[in-house]
């Protein structure tokens, strides 16, 4: 284990941590956008030609599905972020 970390190492760790975090965030926000604005709004008519039980799929995404995906996304993000924190040694211990 390194006992001394000089400032350029620290800056490199911070930069790599930040790029890993922003990548994860962008990935999650892509899904966030697709399920709500994509499936629920922009492509709702196309999605509505498919049915899910008594639901039209676009309508289901707009009134149910997007909310479930949002929840899953936040917990997925929180888990991945915790792992990224640990990998970079910047977690809160």
């Amino acid at each position: 284990m390194k006992t001394h970390i000089d400032s350029s190492d620290k800056a490199a760790i911070a930069a790599s941590y930040w790029s890993a975090s922003t990548k994860l965030i962008l990935g999650c926000l892509f899904v966030w956008f697709v399920v709500s604005y994509g499936f629920g709004i922009l492509f709702v008519d196309a999605m509505n030609t498919i049915s899910l039980g008594g639901y039209k799929l676009g309508f289901w995404f707009a009134q149910q599905g997007s909310i479930y995906v949002f929840i899953a996304l936040i917990f997925f993000y929180a888990r991945r972020m915790n792992a990224i924190d640990r990998d970079h040694g910047v977690d809160e211990g």
């Binding site: 926000l29 709500s36 709004i41 309508f59 707009a62 009134q63």
Partner: peptide, 26 residues
């Protein structure tokens, strides 16, 4: 509101939940 707007009421459902994704991550 949803009862009278039908699909249009989805703005409240998605809008008032999707903000938490932004809050949690950003």
């Amino acid at each position: 509101l949803i009862a009278f707007l039908g699909y249009g009421g989805s703005v409240y459902l998605m809008g008032w939940t999707g903000g938490y994704v932004l809050l949690a991550m950003l």
